[in-house]
Design a protein around this nucleic acid. Structure first.
Lengths: 219, 219
DNA sequence: AAAAAAAACAGGGAAAACCCTGTAAAAATT
DNA sequence: AATTTTTACAGGGTTTTCCCTGTTTTTTTT
């Protein structure tokens, strides 16, 4: 650990919890400096000093006025160098994924041991992130869900021409232009249109395009 | 660790590497049983015994005839209980993400210390997965890339009604139905259509839907 | 209060998409 | 070789989308 103090700031609407965290952080050793604390995102915006940005910000998800998501989003845009460690009671996959996608460097439960909080801050300082097994598990699970969802198409038998037609339909070409490009008559294309509409259960070309994009049949 | 041996199988086209791995695994302690080894995915399909499935399969990405992806995909479908640990020289984000999405429980480089291989097998056996910091980093990075890509829309000034229209247009409603639902005349909707077409540079409703989905303006 | 800008609406027409029913040729089955 | 299935294609009509040129009403600015 270097001789420069790690600068930390906190955003959490529960004063008692916030004060507790601060005392915990300072108890560990004196290599951490608390820059400021805030009740919510708006206060963060006012209290943050561009000339002395925190290295790490501990942020809660649930806060009044401006919640954790909005706060992280704002930080990402205005002070991207600030590394965010979420500390929240909320542990559901959706919140975790949303925060990870916003670029947070760690996500802890509020009932972890003080030791783990220390480890998290140390890891984020040294290698840039700290994801527990729980978080990693959620992350991977979510990815696989997406993928599984995107593969029900294998259940619907579509031949090569139909798949090609679907890809072509996900564009601004007219059916007449698609016919040209596939060397088929517009009437044949109309036949493919009808058959894929029925197979996929869509009622319009827009519906088809949406279905295809959502299910990875076209990019 | 229980008294039942952990059953392991390997798929890698490099015989020497495979043999080395086996000796390493058996050297650790005698709690591991090697069920079989295979040159590629096809051999896995033939050698695997549904009555005595491996707990963990070590699989390489690059293999002739049937590669790692196809092998994992096959295992996922036919023997989902088999936990896959990828061991490969390939370490790029795309391969890693593809394998993770296929549900592999770990991904190691071929030049890790034997100690880490041991840890990985132990972790997968006990808690179900083993992702190194490197893999976790790639995972999170890939997620954030996706999200960043999906947010350039803020650059184009669209008012609330236009955004609502775009969402509605990403459906199978006709413009007349959209007009009803937004309590506006079809002719007004036609005006919104023209203005968003121009702002987003699209030429048809399908083009609009594709643009909106790709840029996160509609789900 | 007047001027300017934005939002809502309209007529009308051409092009594209949609949706029937039906036929001819090629390919696969038997 | 005969039959069935699949693929390719057509006529013709309805609806929807697209696109042009406007007017009226509401909101914002000065």
């Amino acid at each position: 650990m270097s001789n420069v103090k790690v600068k930390i700031a906190l955003a959490d609407d529960h004063t008692l919890f916030r004060k507790g965290m601060i005392s915990l952080i300072q108890m560990v050793n004196n290599s951490h400096e608390i820059l400021f604390e805030a009740d919510n995102g708006i206060e963060v915006q006012h209290k943050i000093d561009p000339l002395s940005l925190p290295d790490i910000m501990l942020i809660d998800v649930n806060m009044p006025v401006m919640d954790g998501y909005a706060t992280v989003d704002w930080l990402k845009l205005h002070h991207p160098s600030v590394k965010v460690l979420v500390v929240s009671m909320i542990q559901d996959e959706e919140s975790i994924m949303r925060m990870i996608k916003l670029g947070v460097k760690g996500y802890l439960s509020k009932d972890v041991e003080p030791e783990e909080l220390k480890n998290a801050i140390a890891a984020i300082t040294s290698k840039g992130f700290y994801y527990t097994d729980y978080i990693t598990g959620k992350l991977v699970h979510s990815l696989q869900q997406e993928e599984d969802y995107a593969q029900k198409d294998a259940l619907i038998p579509l031949n090569a021409k139909e798949k090609e037609f679907i890809k072509m339909a996900c564009s601004e070409f007219t059916y007449a232009e698609i016919a040209q490009r596939m060397n088929l008559s517009p009437k044949t294309i109309d036949g493919y249109r009808l058959s894929v509409f029925e197979k996929l259960g869509v009622k319009s070309r827009v519906g088809l395009a949406i279905y295809a994009l959502r299910n990875g049949m076209a990019r």
